[in-house]
Amino acid sequence: MIGFPPEALVVLAGFTAATGPAFADMGYDLKTGHLLRGGDGDPAFDLEGRRQQLIAAMIGFGVAVVVVLVSYQMFFDNGKVPPIDAAYVAAIKTGPFMETARNLALWAIPGALVQFLGGPRRQLGILLVTGLLITTPMAGWLVAAGLVCRLLAPRVLGPRVQEDLEVFAGGAIAGDALYSFGHGAFDALRK
C-alpha cells in the first residue's frame, strides 16, 4: 500500500515468518527463567541467570543457522514451507490496491472480535487463524482433544496435574519438531 516493491515485501515476509515465533518463544523462555530463579528475590542471581540464558540462546541461534543453511534447499524443493507464507504470498500477489486494504480491514474486524471475546490470555484470534492456515483436519481434532484434556484433567486428577500437563506439552512440542524435521529431511533425501 505504501509502495514497497514485491521483492522487499518477500524479504519482509520471510523475516517475519522466520523470526516472529523465535522471538516470542525467547520472551517466554526469559520470563520462565526469571520465575524459576525466584523472581526479584536475588537480583545478582537473576542477572547471572539471564546472562547464561543469553549465551544458551546465542548457541541455539548459531546451531539453527547451520541447520537452516544445510537443509533449507531440500525443504523448499519439496514445497515444505510454513503455512503463514501462503497468507503472505496472497497479500503480496494482490498488489497495492485499495481493495486489498479494504479486505484486510474487513477481516480484521471478526479477528479482533474473536480476540476480544477470548481475552488477552487465551489468544483465540491466533488459534482461529492457525486453524485457517493449517490444511490438515487431524491437526484441528488434536487441538480440540488437547483442550478437552486440559479442561478435564485438573477436575479429575486434581489441580497439581496442571504442571504435568505443561511439561508434557513442552515435550510433545519438542518431539513433534524433531519428528517433522527428520521426516521432511528423510523424504527430501529419498527423492
Results as ranks from 00 to 15, higher is better:
Pro6Asp: 04
Gly140Lys: 05
Tyr88Ser: 05
Ile109Ser: 10
Lys191Leu: 10
Ala172Thr: 07
Glu99Gly: 12
Thr100His: 00
Phe15Cys: 12
Val156Arg: 09
Leu178Met: 14
Tyr28Gln: 13
Pro43His: 12
Val68Cys: 06
Gly146Phe: 08
Gly131Arg: 01
Val161Ile: 13
Met58Gly: 03
Leu30Val: 06
Leu12Asp: 01
Ile173Ser: 00
Gly41Ser: 15
Asp40Gly: 12
Gln73Cys: 06
Ile173Asp: 01
Thr100Ser: 03
Pro83Ser: 00
Ala44Leu: 14
Phe45Ala: 12
Gly170Ser: 03
Gly62Glu: 12
Val70Thr: 12
Leu165Gly: 04
Asp164Ser: 10
Asp40Tyr: 11
Arg160Cys: 12
Ala153Gln: 01
Leu104Gln: 02
Met74Ala: 06
Pro154Leu: 00
Gly3His: 00
Thr32Ser: 15
Asp42Asn: 14
Lys191Gly: 14
Phe23Arg: 02
Glu163Cys: 09
Pro96Cys: 10
Cys149Tyr: 04
Ala188Glu: 05
Arg155Glu: 15
Leu113Ile: 07
Gln162Ala: 11
Phe76Gly: 12
Trp107His: 02
Asp85Thr: 07
Leu47Val: 15
Ala105Phe: 12
Met138Ser: 14
Ser71Val: 04
Gly62Cys: 14
Met98Leu: 15
Asp187Phe: 13
Pro21His: 08
Val148Leu: 15
Leu30Pro: 01
Trp107Phe: 06
Gly60Phe: 08
Ala174Asn: 13
Val81His: 01
Val66Phe: 02
Lys93Leu: 13
Pro82Gln: 10
Val10Tyr: 04
Ala57His: 08
Lys80Phe: 08
Gly38Asn: 07
Arg150Cys: 00
Asn78Phe: 08
Leu127Thr: 03
Cys149Met: 14
Ser71Tyr: 03
Gly182Leu: 13
Leu35Cys: 10
Ile173Thr: 04
Lys93Thr: 13
Leu189Tyr: 13
Arg190Leu: 13
Gly171Leu: 06
Leu36Lys: 08
Ile55Tyr: 09
Ile2Met: 11
Ala101Glu: 02
Phe181Ile: 08
Pro5Phe: 03
Gly118Asp: 00
Gly125Asp: 02
Gly79Thr: 07
Phe76Asn: 11
Pro137Thr: 02
Leu30Trp: 00
Tyr88Met: 07
Phe168Ser: 03
Phe75Asp: 01
Leu124Thr: 00
Thr16Gly: 11
Gly171Gln: 03
Glu99Ser: 15
Arg160Met: 13
Met26Gln: 06
Arg50Leu: 09
Phe76Gln: 11
Pro82Gly: 08
